[in-house]
């Protein structure tokens, strides 16, 4: 198995954190992984992205020229990275914020109204990032919800309330995706 996952959105959506939780999930499964952030002049509202590579073999570049998975949190993020989608790539779209229905041959689109779900079901729109991660975990038999939850617990030590919300987000996304 080898996945090159690009998570793209705007600063404040938690695209770096989502990537870390995903990399930790892979680690919990005993897989190889790397996480690489966009570390330029990122700021709240500006563009932001992180790349996670997951593999059962030694990983070369932590940077993905072409992606097998794109998790698009915003219009801008989708527009920037969709051209990099490989043949048979999975593109998970935050359909709450991305209103048009993108098309590309040989790509599987999954539409998840993550921001709306986070707002109405958890009461905090910031949880959209882990809803998207939950949806991705569902798509890969090598990853489990249980490992994602373990990874999540490591991301929020000493913050039980925030952890609970994030756990719920993972479950919501996992159960939403087919």
């Amino acid at each position: 198995m080898k996945d090159k996952v690009i998570i793209a959105g705007f600063g404040g959506q938690g695209v770096l954190l989502a990537g870390m939780v995903l990399a930790q999930t892979a680690l919990e499964e005993g897989l190889q992984t790397t996480w690489f952030p966009a570390y330029g002049a990122e700021m709240r509202g500006g563009s932001a992205n992180s790349t996670v590579v997951i593999s059962d073999e030694e990983i070369g570049s932590p940077v993905a020229v072409a992606a097998s998975v794109i998790i698009a949190m915003s219009d801008q993020g989708l527009g920037r990275f969709l051209p990099r989608a490989e043949q048979n790539a999975v593109v998970i779209v935050n359909s709450s914020l991305i209103k048009n229905r993108p098309e590309k041959d040989g790509v599987e689109f999954i539409f998840v109204p993550a921001s709306d779900m986070a707002d109405t079901k958890i009461g905090d729109v910031r949880m959209a990032n882990l809803i998207m991660i939950g949806a991705y975990v569902k798509k890969r038999k090598e990853l489990s919800l249980e490992s994602a939850k373990k990874a999540c617990a490591k991301a929020f030590p000493g913050k039980p309330k925030i952890l609970e919300m994030n756990m719920k987000a993972l479950e919501l996304g996992f159960n939403y995706a087919k």
Binding site: M20, A23, L27, T33, T34, F36, Y39, P62
Partner: peptide, 10 residues
């Protein structure tokens, strides 16, 4: 370099 410095790995 910046890539090895910024990346995370187990």
């Amino acid at each position: 370099d910046g890539v090895v410095g910024q990346m995370m790995e187990p």
